[in-house]
Structure formats: structure tokens, C-alpha cells
């Protein structure tokens, strides 16, 4: 661990470092007032950034392990590489920017903050994201997602930009199954049979447009692409048709 004394920048070489030691170092650095931490040679260490609650910047070079930023509360984590499963699991606040792809259950139960993934994500991305008041998590995916994206969504915004999509066609099935809050915006085409039973299709409202523009502009800034070009094309909104998707299941 090297700490730059004048600026509040630190560098960690994560070679052969157990996640417990890595996270302990992060905790110490952040408690000591370090504002930016660069972690090099990351090879699958889990839980990076968990238990950090300040808006520090963390740069990861390599491949972080599962549960990156789980329960995280404020930092901005940029990954130059792919993220694995559970990225942003139950995250409360902060930002995760993945210059690559992310695995399954990206953004599971996120309660706030933003996740940007340049390429695609695995299964069940954005499952059970929530929102309340000014806490409004966002998951922006550059390309596409696998099955059950947006499952059980109770709030927040999920965007599929469809960049580089083969035949312009998303392949996920069961999109938004059990969705009862929040919104999914997508570019590219999705057939009706790919949607969960609880999801409706709509045109974007002015308010939807504002949200979309704000998030796509940020996405483009992070990954250096043409926001206007993306936003020019047609986006469609998926919304929960029912507040109570399973309200009719029971008899008293």
C-alpha cells in the first residue's frame, strides 16, 4: 500500500491479497481521509467496497469477485475489467461503473445509487430493486441482459441500451416477471412473449424521457460514446401492469 502524502491518493497492489485484508486496508484508508484509491492486480477478491460509507473514488484494475459493492453506501467504484455475480447487491448509495460485462443478479435489491455496465449482464439483473422518496436506484446496461431481468422490481430504473445487439433483438425471456414498481426502458426489439405476465408496454412520457436522458448522458460520459445518437433512436417503456400481481392468488 502506497499513500501519496500531498494528495489523498493511495494505491494497493492486490496480488495474493485476501479480500479480508484488502477490505481492511480500504476501511483504514477511507477512515484516514483518502479520497481516491487505485487497486491493481485484482484477481477475484470478493466484497470490494462493502462497508464503505463515504463518497470516495475506487479504481479497480483486474477482475473483482462476487458481491462487489454489496451494501455499499457512497463510493464510486470504476472497474477496468469484468464484474462477477452480485455486483451492487443491496447497495444503498454510490456508483459502480463497469468497463466490461457484469454477471448474474447485478443490482440485486439495490435501494439507491447507480450501476453502469458497458456491455451485457447475466441472469436476473435488477431483481427486486426498490425505491422510496429520493432514493431511486438506476441500472444502465450498455447492451443486453439474460432472462428474468427486472424480476420482482419494486422500484428504480433499469435501462437496456441494446448497443451492438445482434439483429437488434434482445434475447431475454421472462422480462419483469413479478414486477410491481419502477420502470424498464429499452432500445432494440423485444417480442411480447419475452415479457413476464405482469408487464405492460408503453411509450415514454416526458418524465421518462428526462430520466432516460439524464442516465444515458452519464453512461456516455463514462464510456465515451454518443449520447445523442443513442437517444435519437426509439426507446420503449415496460411498466408493472398491476400493483398487486399476486393479489388474486388467495382465498381467506
Amino acid at each position: 500500500m502506497e499513500r501519496n502524502k500531498t494528495a489523498t491518493l493511495a494505491t494497493i497492489d492486490a496480488t495474493s491479497l485476501h479480500y479480508r485484508n484488502l477490505n481492511a486496508q480500504l476501511r483504514d484508508l477511507v477512515a484516514g481521509g483518502t479520497e481516491k484509491i487505485i487497486i491493481n492486480n485484482v484477481y477475484g477478491q470478493r466484497y470490494i467496497g462493502t462497508d464503505l460509507n463515504k463518497p470516495v473514488e475506487i479504481e479497480i484494475h483486474g477482475t473483482p469477485g462476487n458481491d462487489l459493492g454489496a451494501f455499499m453506501d457512497g463510493p464510486t467504484v470504476t472497474i477496468y475489467g469484468n464484474a462477477q455475480d452480485g455486483t451492487g447487491n443491496t447497495m444503498n448509495d454510490g456508483r459502480i461503473i463497469v468497463h466490461g460485462r457484469a454477471g448474474d443478479i447485478t443490482g440485486l435489491s439495490a435501494r439507491g445509487g447507480e450501476i453502469y455496465v458497458r456491455d451485457s449482464v447475466g441472469y436476473r439483473a435488477g431483481i427486486h430493486m426498490k425505491a422510496f422518496g429520493d432514493k431511486m436506484p438506476a441500472l444502465v446496461i450498455g447492451s443486453t441482459a439474460q432472462d428474468f431481468v427486472g424480476e420482482y422490481m419494486a422500484g428504480g430504473v433499469l435501462i437496456l441500451l441494446g448497443i451492438g445487439l445482434e439483429g437488434n433483438q434482445h434475447k431475454a425471456s421472462f422480462i419483469g416477471t413479478g414486477m410491481h414498481g419502477g420502470a424498464i426502458y429499452f432500445r432494440g426489439s423485444i417480442e411480447e412473449h419475452q415479457l413476464g405476465k405482469e408487464v405492460g408496454i408503453a411509450e415514454l412520457s416526458g418524465e421518462d424521457r428526462t430520466t432516460l436522458t439524464r442516465l444515458v448522458t452519464k453512461f456516455s460520459r463514462y464510456f465515451n460514446c454518443d449520447a445523442e445518437g443513442i437517444l435519437k433512436e426509439k426507446f420503449t417503456k415496460l411498466y408493472p401492469k398491476y400493483l398487486r400481481p399476486y393479489g388474486q392468488l388467495y382465498t381467506y
Binding site: 458481491d67 440485486l108 419494486a154 414498481g181 398487486r244
Partner: peptide, 18 residues
């Protein structure tokens, strides 16, 4: 407290998906 919209059922999935 649960961070879900009013008027919806609070849905706990059968498994924890992680």
C-alpha cells in the same frame, strides 16, 4: 420502512437469489 410503493403487496421471493 420496506421501500416499496403503497398499495402493492410486499413480495418476498421463495429463495434468496444470491
Amino acid at each position: 420502512t420496506r421501500m416499496i410503493p403503497r398499495g402493492t403487496d410486499a413480495l418476498s421471493p421463495a429463495p434468496q437469489h444470491d
